[in-house]
């Protein structure tokens, strides 16, 4: 039997009030071990209060070759931003 430990992606919340952020990856045989390893590898310097682990193969990523059709159409939708709307300077609190 030759099966390597799968790769896991590690997300760490550095303090309550902040979101979990991608910190990196590591190898582990199961989720329990991935959590333990993540604690030892990525929070040695007090960097976290909560950890998520997910096996890398479960992540579906968008294809960068399609980034044109996926993301560029949003570029010219300026009406979604407050600066699109012209108001006189003396209007306050808006």
């Amino acid at each position: 039997m030759k099966k390597d430990w799968p790769l896991w992606e590690i997300f760490v919340r550095s303090k309550n009030g902040l979101e979990h952020r991608h910190f990196g990856s590591l190898h582990a045989a199961d989720a329990e071990m991935a959590l333990e390893n993540a604690r030892d590898v990525y929070t040695r310097r007090n960097e976290g209060v909560s950890i998520w682990v997910v096996e890398s193969r479960h992540i579906t990523a968008s294809n960068p070759e399609k980034s044109g059709e996926l993301f560029e159409p949003a570029q010219d939708k300026v009406y979604r931003h407050p600066t699109f709307y012209d108001l006189p300077d003396d209007v306050k609190h808006m």
Binding site: W5, A28, N37, D40, V41
Partner: peptide, 11 residues
């Protein structure tokens, strides 16, 4: 046996 266990045991 792995880098991960090395780091854990050192902790």
């Amino acid at each position: 046996p792995t880098l991960e266990t090395d780091i854990a045991l050192t902790n």
